[in-house]
Each structure stands twice: as C-alpha cells, then as structure tokens.
Computed example of a mutant assay.
Amino acid sequence: MDIDTRLLRYFAAVAEEGHLTRAAERLFISQPALTKQIKQLETQFGVELFTRSRTGMALTEAGRVLAERIPVVLEDWDLALRETRSASSRASHVLRVGFVASAANENTQEIIGSFARRRPGWRVDMRQTDWSDPTAGLADGQVDVALLRLPFPGQDTLRVEVLITEPRWVGIPTAHPLAELAEIPFRQLWDEPFVATPTESGWWRDYWLATQEREGHPVKIGAIASNPDEWLTAIANGYGVSLTPEATARFYQRPGVTYRLVTGVSPSQVGVAWAPAGDSDPVVGDFVRACLAGHRTSTTAEPDIGTPMGEASAD
C-alpha cells in the first residue's frame, strides 16, 4: 500500500493539536480540506484513527500506534529527499538559494560575490517563490539555504541568523490623503483596508497585517496578493494599503503607489536560514559566512556551521 507523505503530515498535525481547526491553521489549509484528507488516510488504512467529538479529536488505539511511528518515518523521508536533491546540485557545483521578493536587499550581489570567492567554480541558483511559501522552498528541501523576511512559519525548526533590521513603511495609493504626510502613525491606518498575502502563508500574513499591534482593532482586507506585481497593482488601484519593508520603497516603484515611514509598529528583519542538516555542509557554511560578512559585530560569535572558513574553499 502506497501512502502520500502529505497525508501523514496532516495526520501528525491533528494528532499533536488534538483539534481540527488548530491543525488546519498550523498547516495553512481549510478545515474541510483537512477533514477530507484525514478521512482519505483512514480509508487507505481501513481503520479509524480518531474519535471525533465537539471538544476535539482523540486518537484511537490504532491512531496512537501510528502517531508513535510517524515522526521517525517523516524525518527519514525528509532527510532522504533533502540529500537526494542536494546531491544533484552538488554534482553540478550549484547552491540553491531561495528568496521571497527582494531577498537581502542591495546586499544580495555582495553576498554572492563573497561566496564565489570562498567557492571558486560554484554557482548560486537564486529561486524566488511567491508569498504563499514564506520559507522560499526551504521547508520542503527545494533549496539548500534561503534569504528570508523574519519572522516566518516554521522558523523555530530551522537555523536562522539575522542580517538586516529596518523600519516598516506603508505602500499607499498616491491619491490617498495620508500620502501627504512624511510619516504615518500606525494607528491612523487601522481603519484602512489592507492588501494581504494568501491565507496559506499562515501567521506570516498576520505579521504583515500587524494584527498583534492593533490593540484588538479588527483588520479590513481589501485585496489578496501573491507576489509584488499583484500587490503593487492592488495598492495603485486603491483597493488597500500595506505594511512593507523599507527596502520596498527602493526596489518597487510604481506609478500610483507612494511609500511612507510608519511609526508605532515593530521593525522588519532579513535573515539567512538553513536546515539543521546543513550544519555539517561546508558549502552551506560558506554561504552563511558570506551573508554574515560585514553584518556581524566583532562582539558576536560566528555560528558553528560547516567547515571553518578557509579550510575547504573548493571541492
């Protein structure tokens, strides 16, 4: 019998949460879709895995046995998948680097140049994803390392080093009355419709709506955008405003869109992230060190990853 590993991940989330709604939020899918997937898994096994009630989902005896086995199965599969994909890129001397939107701002080219000096003959393959995957392919092993906006879902399971901290700005229609201000207090934006990322982006979406910094004031969603072009178009058309990193004002100019500094809201950060398995990978280690060059203070320790710089500059 062949089982889709995606179904096993859904099962594990429900087993851990004990509740469909919470598990669906964690997985970034709808509750009806999750219910359907759990029923499909039960049909394939031919047993009931959960006892349903109004208070939640309790594991049956069969479900408990499966729940004990699933973590090892998924961990082994993830490792095999990651190593297989990595081996292919290593054979070609290619490092796969994921990013969302502007990556590490203007520092991206400097980072790639620093990596090239550490790894002569290697090439960096930059792979952009839309906003439905804030990990830029890192979570499922599509890339070896990623340049990401922090925080992001699953960050606590990965290695992360902060590179840049910058204030958040707002993208606003040029004709909007608030565009006349040099700085806009966040409180003045609370009643504005916002352009949001897709629901699949989970609480990363909430971060960019600053839901925790509104003192309970509800969010109005005016439009959904999956990438910068959709986002800029929605703002220019007057469908909403949106918090954004300071770098966006430099990278993404569009007629009809004005950027202003926002006060009274937390800053944004950019970080380099990699999976724990990459700790022993000297190529990933060289890329992380290339990212940290020029960003790390002399009083901050260098992360222990890969082969020490200078010991293995080429394969």
Rank of each mutant, 00 (worst) to 15 (best):
V170Q: 05
L147N: 03
D78K: 02
T108L: 13
A67H: 13
V73F: 10
L150W: 05
M126G: 02
I112E: 02
L150A: 09
G121R: 02
T135I: 01
D125A: 09
E110I: 07
G137N: 04
V160L: 04
V94I: 15
G98V: 03
R85N: 14
P134I: 06
V162D: 12
E68N: 14
A104T: 07
R117W: 08
V100M: 06
V145Y: 05
S88Y: 06
L66W: 13
R69C: 06
L158I: 12
I172V: 13
L66S: 10
G141R: 00
A101D: 14
L81K: 14
P151I: 08
D133H: 07
Q142K: 12
S86R: 14
G137W: 01
G137A: 03
E106W: 12
R117K: 15
G113H: 14
E68L: 11
T174M: 10
A175K: 12
D130Q: 02
R82Q: 14
A87D: 14
G98F: 07
R118V: 03
L74I: 05
I112A: 00
D156F: 10
A87V: 07
Q128M: 12
L148A: 03
T84G: 15
N105L: 08
G113T: 10
T135E: 02
W131V: 01
A136S: 11
F115V: 03
E110C: 01
E83M: 11
R159V: 12
E75P: 04
Q142G: 11
L81R: 15
G154M: 01
P134Q: 07
V97Y: 00
S132I: 04
V162I: 15
A101G: 03
E166C: 06
F152M: 03
V124Q: 00
W77C: 00
G171Y: 05
G137H: 04
S102Q: 12
V65Y: 13
R149G: 15
V100L: 10
A80Q: 14
D140M: 11
A67R: 09
